[in-house]
Amino acid sequence: MSANGTITQTLREAAAQVLSEEKVGVVIGYGRDDGQEFSTPVFLRKAEEVKRLVFDDLCFGNLAVYLPRPEIRKMGKTGIVVKGCDLRAVNVLLRENVIKREDVLLIGVRCGGVGQPQLPKCSVCELHDPGGCDVVVGEAIEQQEVKAEQRYTEAGKIEAKPAEHRWEFWQKQLSKCIRCYACRQVCPLCYCKRCIIEKSTPQWVQTSPHLRGNLAWNVTRALHLTGRCVGCGECERVCPMDIPLGAINQKMAKVVDERFGFRSGFSAQEEAPFTTFSTEDSEEGIL
Protein backbone atom coordinates (compact mmCIF):
# COMPACT_ATOMS: atom_id res chain seq x y z
CA MET A 1 0.00 0.00 0.00
CA SER A 2 1.24 3.39 -0.81
CA ALA A 3 0.42 6.61 0.93
CA ASN A 4 0.98 8.37 -2.37
CA GLY A 5 -1.20 6.10 -4.51
CA THR A 6 -3.48 8.38 -6.50
CA ILE A 7 -1.37 11.45 -6.99
CA THR A 8 0.20 10.48 -10.31
CA GLN A 9 -2.89 11.19 -12.41
CA THR A 10 -3.59 14.64 -10.98
CA LEU A 11 0.11 15.43 -11.17
CA ARG A 12 0.19 14.59 -14.88
CA GLU A 13 -2.83 16.80 -15.50
CA ALA A 14 -1.26 19.69 -13.65
CA ALA A 15 2.03 19.30 -15.52
CA ALA A 16 0.28 18.99 -18.89
CA GLN A 17 -1.62 22.17 -18.21
CA VAL A 18 1.36 24.33 -17.32
CA LEU A 19 3.32 22.95 -20.26
CA SER A 20 0.55 23.39 -22.83
CA GLU A 21 -0.21 26.89 -21.61
CA GLU A 22 3.52 27.60 -21.93
CA LYS A 23 3.74 28.80 -18.38
CA VAL A 24 6.99 26.89 -18.06
CA GLY A 25 9.72 25.67 -20.39
CA VAL A 26 10.35 22.46 -18.49
CA VAL A 27 8.80 20.41 -15.74
CA ILE A 28 11.19 18.49 -13.54
CA GLY A 29 9.52 15.52 -11.91
CA TYR A 30 9.94 11.84 -11.23
CA GLY A 31 9.65 8.99 -13.70
CA ARG A 32 10.20 5.28 -13.60
CA ASP A 33 11.57 3.20 -16.43
CA ASP A 34 11.31 -0.57 -16.54
CA GLY A 35 13.54 -2.27 -14.04
CA GLN A 36 14.39 0.82 -12.05
CA GLU A 37 14.42 0.34 -8.32
CA PHE A 38 13.31 3.86 -7.50
CA SER A 39 11.82 6.84 -9.27
CA THR A 40 14.36 9.04 -10.99
CA PRO A 41 14.39 12.59 -12.33
CA VAL A 42 12.71 13.33 -15.66
CA PHE A 43 12.77 16.58 -17.59
CA LEU A 44 9.61 17.22 -19.61
CA ARG A 45 9.42 19.86 -22.30
CA LYS A 46 6.10 18.96 -23.97
CA ALA A 47 2.63 18.23 -22.64
CA GLU A 48 2.62 14.87 -24.49
CA GLU A 49 5.53 13.70 -22.35
CA VAL A 50 3.66 13.91 -19.06
CA LYS A 51 2.78 10.21 -19.19
CA ARG A 52 6.38 9.65 -18.07
CA LEU A 53 5.57 11.40 -14.82
CA VAL A 54 4.86 9.40 -11.67
CA PHE A 55 4.54 10.03 -8.00
CA ASP A 56 4.91 7.13 -5.64
CA ASP A 57 6.65 6.25 -2.41
CA LEU A 58 9.98 5.73 -4.15
CA CYS A 59 10.39 9.36 -5.20
CA PHE A 60 13.42 9.96 -3.01
CA GLY A 61 15.34 12.57 -4.93
CA ASN A 62 15.31 16.23 -3.97
CA LEU A 63 14.83 17.78 -7.40
CA ALA A 64 15.66 21.27 -6.15
CA VAL A 65 19.29 20.33 -6.87
CA TYR A 66 18.59 21.02 -10.56
CA LEU A 67 17.18 24.53 -10.10
CA PRO A 68 20.46 26.47 -10.13
CA ARG A 69 21.84 24.55 -13.14
CA PRO A 70 22.56 26.69 -16.21
CA GLU A 71 21.38 23.99 -18.64
CA ILE A 72 18.00 23.88 -16.89
CA ARG A 73 17.65 27.65 -16.65
CA LYS A 74 18.27 27.91 -20.38
CA MET A 75 14.99 26.08 -20.95
CA GLY A 76 12.98 28.95 -19.51
CA LYS A 77 10.84 29.11 -16.42
CA THR A 78 11.19 25.88 -14.46
CA GLY A 79 8.25 23.86 -13.22
CA ILE A 80 9.31 21.53 -10.45
CA VAL A 81 7.59 18.80 -8.49
CA VAL A 82 8.28 19.28 -4.80
CA LYS A 83 7.49 17.31 -1.71
CA GLY A 84 7.39 19.20 1.57
CA CYS A 85 11.02 18.39 2.32
CA ASP A 86 12.08 19.51 -1.15
CA LEU A 87 10.15 22.75 -0.72
CA ARG A 88 12.30 23.56 2.26
CA ALA A 89 15.37 23.39 0.03
CA VAL A 90 13.65 25.65 -2.52
CA ASN A 91 12.97 28.12 0.28
CA VAL A 92 16.65 28.22 1.17
CA LEU A 93 17.58 28.76 -2.50
CA LEU A 94 15.10 31.66 -2.60
CA ARG A 95 16.36 33.07 0.67
CA GLU A 96 19.94 32.95 -0.57
CA ASN A 97 18.99 34.60 -3.87
CA VAL A 98 20.17 31.67 -5.93
CA ILE A 99 16.85 31.54 -7.75
CA LYS A 100 14.04 34.03 -8.10
CA ARG A 101 10.47 33.13 -7.21
CA GLU A 102 9.19 34.30 -10.60
CA ASP A 103 11.58 31.92 -12.37
CA VAL A 104 10.08 28.80 -10.82
CA LEU A 105 6.65 27.27 -10.81
CA LEU A 106 6.23 25.03 -7.81
CA ILE A 107 4.04 21.97 -8.21
CA GLY A 108 3.64 20.80 -4.65
CA VAL A 109 2.60 17.27 -3.80
CA ARG A 110 1.00 16.34 -0.53
CA CYS A 111 3.32 13.51 0.33
CA GLY A 112 2.59 10.90 2.95
CA GLY A 113 6.21 9.81 3.07
CA VAL A 114 8.60 7.83 0.90
CA GLY A 115 10.51 4.59 1.30
CA GLN A 116 9.56 0.98 1.94
CA PRO A 117 9.77 0.92 4.90
CA GLN A 118 9.20 4.60 5.31
CA LEU A 119 12.29 6.74 5.86
CA PRO A 120 12.83 7.98 9.41
CA LYS A 121 12.66 11.59 8.20
CA CYS A 122 9.13 10.98 6.88
CA SER A 123 7.80 9.76 10.21
CA VAL A 124 8.69 13.15 11.72
CA CYS A 125 7.72 15.19 8.63
CA GLU A 126 6.23 18.55 9.51
CA LEU A 127 5.45 19.56 5.96
CA HIS A 128 3.19 16.90 4.48
CA ASP A 129 1.35 19.78 2.89
CA PRO A 130 3.74 22.08 1.03
CA GLY A 131 2.53 25.65 1.52
CA GLY A 132 3.14 28.50 -0.88
CA CYS A 133 3.24 26.41 -4.08
CA ASP A 134 1.65 27.54 -7.32
CA VAL A 135 -0.18 24.25 -7.77
CA VAL A 136 -0.80 21.63 -5.13
CA VAL A 137 -1.87 18.07 -5.89
CA GLY A 138 -2.95 15.19 -3.68
CA GLU A 139 -5.38 14.91 -0.86
CA ALA A 140 -4.95 16.64 2.44
CA ILE A 141 -2.91 14.66 4.92
CA GLU A 142 -3.43 15.04 8.60
CA GLN A 143 -0.40 16.71 10.10
CA GLN A 144 0.69 15.03 13.27
CA GLU A 145 2.34 16.99 15.96
CA VAL A 146 6.08 16.43 16.07
CA LYS A 147 7.80 17.03 19.35
CA ALA A 148 11.20 18.67 19.54
CA GLU A 149 12.86 15.55 20.94
CA GLN A 150 11.68 13.47 17.96
CA ARG A 151 13.51 15.60 15.43
CA TYR A 152 17.08 14.73 16.16
CA THR A 153 17.02 11.08 17.15
CA GLU A 154 19.81 9.97 14.78
CA ALA A 155 22.21 12.57 16.15
CA GLY A 156 20.99 11.76 19.66
CA LYS A 157 22.02 8.12 19.34
CA ILE A 158 25.59 9.16 18.62
CA GLU A 159 25.62 11.91 21.23
CA ALA A 160 24.72 9.33 23.83
CA LYS A 161 28.03 7.51 23.36
CA PRO A 162 31.04 8.55 25.40
CA ALA A 163 33.50 10.84 23.57
CA GLU A 164 36.13 8.20 22.90
CA HIS A 165 33.52 5.87 21.43
CA ARG A 166 32.28 8.67 19.21
CA TRP A 167 35.76 9.25 17.86
CA GLU A 168 36.24 5.54 17.35
CA PHE A 169 32.89 5.39 15.52
CA TRP A 170 33.63 8.35 13.26
CA GLN A 171 37.14 7.19 12.53
CA LYS A 172 35.70 3.97 11.21
CA GLN A 173 32.97 5.76 9.25
CA LEU A 174 35.09 8.52 7.78
CA SER A 175 37.88 6.16 6.80
CA LYS A 176 35.43 4.63 4.33
CA CYS A 177 34.95 7.87 2.41
CA ILE A 178 36.18 7.59 -1.19
CA ARG A 179 35.75 11.29 -1.96
CA CYS A 180 33.35 10.76 -4.84
CA TYR A 181 31.55 13.91 -3.64
CA ALA A 182 28.16 12.37 -4.34
CA CYS A 183 27.04 13.96 -1.04
CA ARG A 184 27.97 17.39 -2.35
CA GLN A 185 26.64 16.92 -5.86
CA VAL A 186 23.25 15.67 -4.74
CA CYS A 187 22.78 18.47 -2.22
CA PRO A 188 20.50 21.26 -3.44
CA LEU A 189 22.34 23.68 -1.17
CA CYS A 190 25.87 22.82 -2.34
CA TYR A 191 25.50 25.05 -5.35
CA CYS A 192 28.86 26.84 -5.21
CA LYS A 193 30.37 27.17 -8.66
CA ARG A 194 33.66 26.20 -7.14
CA CYS A 195 33.71 24.25 -3.91
CA ILE A 196 36.36 25.06 -1.30
CA ILE A 197 37.77 21.58 -1.84
CA GLU A 198 38.60 22.60 -5.40
CA LYS A 199 40.58 25.63 -4.32
CA SER A 200 44.26 24.95 -4.10
CA THR A 201 45.87 28.27 -3.16
CA PRO A 202 45.93 27.40 -0.35
CA GLN A 203 44.63 23.85 -0.28
CA TRP A 204 42.44 24.10 2.81
CA VAL A 205 41.11 20.61 2.57
CA GLN A 206 43.40 17.82 1.50
CA THR A 207 41.96 15.88 -1.39
CA SER A 208 43.56 12.56 -0.48
CA PRO A 209 41.07 10.05 0.89
CA HIS A 210 43.00 9.45 4.10
CA LEU A 211 41.41 9.98 7.47
CA ARG A 212 42.66 13.52 8.03
CA GLY A 213 41.53 14.59 4.57
CA ASN A 214 38.19 12.88 5.00
CA LEU A 215 37.69 14.45 8.42
CA ALA A 216 38.50 17.90 7.07
CA TRP A 217 36.13 17.39 4.17
CA ASN A 218 33.25 16.17 6.31
CA VAL A 219 33.74 18.88 8.94
CA THR A 220 33.80 21.53 6.23
CA ARG A 221 30.76 20.12 4.54
CA ALA A 222 28.83 20.02 7.80
CA LEU A 223 29.77 23.59 8.71
CA HIS A 224 28.96 25.01 5.30
CA LEU A 225 25.51 23.48 5.63
CA THR A 226 24.90 24.53 9.23
CA GLY A 227 21.75 26.60 9.46
CA ARG A 228 21.03 25.78 5.82
CA CYS A 229 20.58 22.00 5.61
CA VAL A 230 16.91 21.08 5.46
CA GLY A 231 17.43 17.45 6.38
CA CYS A 232 16.24 15.91 3.11
CA GLY A 233 18.74 13.10 3.70
CA GLU A 234 19.85 12.80 0.09
CA CYS A 235 23.55 12.86 1.01
CA GLU A 236 23.17 9.81 3.15
CA ARG A 237 21.01 8.01 0.59
CA VAL A 238 23.51 8.44 -2.23
CA CYS A 239 26.69 7.74 -0.26
CA PRO A 240 28.11 4.60 -1.88
CA MET A 241 30.03 3.85 1.29
CA ASP A 242 27.02 4.10 3.66
CA ILE A 243 28.48 6.82 5.88
CA PRO A 244 25.77 8.16 8.22
CA LEU A 245 26.05 11.73 6.92
CA GLY A 246 22.48 12.53 7.94
CA ALA A 247 23.43 12.27 11.60
CA ILE A 248 26.13 14.94 11.17
CA ASN A 249 23.72 17.32 9.49
CA GLN A 250 21.09 16.56 12.09
CA LYS A 251 23.53 17.41 14.85
CA MET A 252 24.17 20.82 13.35
CA ALA A 253 20.44 21.38 12.79
CA LYS A 254 19.97 20.60 16.45
CA VAL A 255 22.69 23.06 17.42
CA VAL A 256 21.06 25.94 15.54
CA ASP A 257 17.61 24.93 16.76
CA GLU A 258 18.64 24.82 20.40
CA ARG A 259 20.99 27.78 20.37
CA PHE A 260 19.21 30.15 18.04
CA GLY A 261 15.68 28.74 17.78
CA PHE A 262 16.19 28.40 14.04
CA ARG A 263 14.97 25.72 11.66
CA SER A 264 15.95 25.96 8.05
CA GLY A 265 13.67 26.13 5.06
CA PHE A 266 10.27 26.83 6.58
CA SER A 267 10.18 30.26 5.02
CA ALA A 268 11.90 31.99 2.13
CA GLN A 269 12.31 35.23 4.07
CA GLU A 270 14.06 34.31 7.30
CA GLU A 271 17.65 35.17 8.12
CA ALA A 272 20.06 32.28 8.45
CA PRO A 273 21.74 31.85 11.85
CA PHE A 274 25.22 32.61 10.54
CA THR A 275 24.22 35.70 8.60
CA THR A 276 22.86 37.34 11.71
CA PHE A 277 23.45 37.35 15.48
CA SER A 278 21.95 38.32 18.76
CA THR A 279 23.73 40.21 21.52
CA GLU A 280 22.02 37.76 23.86
CA ASP A 281 23.72 34.65 22.40
CA SER A 282 25.24 32.25 24.89
CA GLU A 283 28.71 33.02 26.21
CA GLU A 284 29.12 29.58 27.69
CA GLY A 285 32.56 28.16 27.18
CA ILE A 286 34.22 31.47 26.32
CA LEU A 287 37.18 32.46 28.48
Binding site: V219, K251, M252, D281, E283, G285, I286
Partner: peptide
Amino acid sequence: YHARRKLLAFRELLDFFGIDQRRFKISW
Protein backbone atom coordinates in the same frame (compact mmCIF):
# COMPACT_ATOMS: atom_id res chain seq x y z
CA TYR B 1 29.16 38.28 17.50
CA HIS B 2 29.39 36.32 14.25
CA ALA B 3 32.52 34.57 15.48
CA ARG B 4 30.73 33.59 18.67
CA ARG B 5 27.96 31.82 16.80
CA LYS B 6 30.22 30.17 14.28
CA LEU B 7 32.98 29.02 16.61
CA LEU B 8 30.74 27.69 19.36
CA ALA B 9 28.81 25.67 16.78
CA PHE B 10 32.11 24.40 15.43
CA ARG B 11 33.15 23.37 18.89
CA GLU B 12 29.95 21.36 19.27
CA LEU B 13 30.69 19.64 15.98
CA LEU B 14 34.18 18.68 17.15
CA ASP B 15 32.63 17.28 20.30
CA PHE B 16 30.11 15.32 18.22
CA PHE B 17 32.99 13.69 16.36
CA GLY B 18 34.50 12.83 19.72
CA ILE B 19 37.39 15.27 19.34
CA ASP B 20 38.38 16.74 22.69
CA GLN B 21 36.86 20.21 22.76
CA ARG B 22 39.20 21.28 25.56
CA ARG B 23 41.77 21.62 22.76
CA PHE B 24 39.91 24.55 21.27
CA LYS B 25 39.60 27.75 23.30
CA ILE B 26 37.77 30.97 22.67
CA SER B 27 38.35 34.13 24.69
CA TRP B 28 37.70 37.86 24.73
